[in-house]
């Protein structure tokens, strides 16, 4: 395995559609809940330990080779907001395209056939990591980092936030990212024995609610 593949997969320039999504930051900015670096950090920390942990665990489990169809079902059950399910499948489909072109694999092909309109993004991410020769914790790191990187980048555009401050936020979240990735790797290994039900289901009520509000805006900069 090449650890450098993780850099390719986690690179914000990896062409998988993420740039059009704010991870809930656009709605939080409009509601006045993100106003600067401090509130961005709290937003990201909350997202990381809730949906970020759930996504990282799904990605880690997929990277270990758990049945992606069962994982996709588990992701549906953990995503009550229809707007977030739509966004997750859209991003999953886009990641699938990029991953198949980058790391051709029979498992990615099979998943694409099973979900022509896209599986949940973390599931695709895990299978892509597997195709790239990466491990469960690598996939978890990638997913966890995306869960905070997206909102941070979007907030730079939305608030004209100083990009150095936004990068500082991500750096300060590093210990939290380590914990989430380790925990995701651990529960994914448990899931191999005990099934997908043991994967975390921690939710963020405000992300769910404001995703529905955001999807109904007539004018917005980001898709979610």
């Amino acid at each position: 395995m090449s650890r450098a593949a993780l850099l390719v997969l986690a690179d914000g320039r990896f062409p998988a559609g993420g740039h059009a999504h704010s991870g809930g930051a656009e709605a939080a900015v409009k509601a006045g809940r993100i106003t600067g670096a401090k509130s961005l950090e709290e937003f990201c920390r909350g997202r990381l330990h809730t949906t970020g942990l759930v996504s990282a665990s799904l990605a880690a489990a997929a990277a270990l080779g758990l049945d992606p169809v069962a994982l996709d079902e588990a992701a549906d059950a953990r995503t009550p907001s229809v707007a977030l399910r739509v966004a997750a499948r859209k991003l999953g489909r886009q990641l699938m395209r990029a991953a198949r072109a980058t790391w051709p694999s029979a498992e990615l092909d099979a998943l694409a056939r099973e979900f022509p309109k896209g599986a949940h993004q973390p599931v695709v991410l895990g299978v892509a990591a597997r195709a790239a020769g990466l491990g469960a914790v690598d996939a978890a790191y990638c997913s966890a980092y995306e869960s905070v990187g997206g909102p941070a980048t979007a907030t730079v555009r939305l608030l004209s936030l100083d990009p150095f401050e936004a990068t500082g936020v991500l750096a300060r979240l590093a210990p939290d990212l380590d914990r989430v990735a380790d925990r995701a790797g651990e529960v994914a290994r448990c899931a191999v024995e005990e099934g997908v039900d043991v994967l975390p289901a921690v939710s963020a009520p405000l992300l769910e609610i404001s995703a529905e509000a955001h999807a109904a805006w007539p004018v917005r900069l980001f898709a979610s």
Partner: peptide, 11 residues
């Protein structure tokens, strides 16, 4: 875990 009362979760 951190952020439970923050702008993404309960605010």
């Amino acid at each position: 875990s951190g952020g439970w009362d923050g702008p993404a979760v309960l605010a």
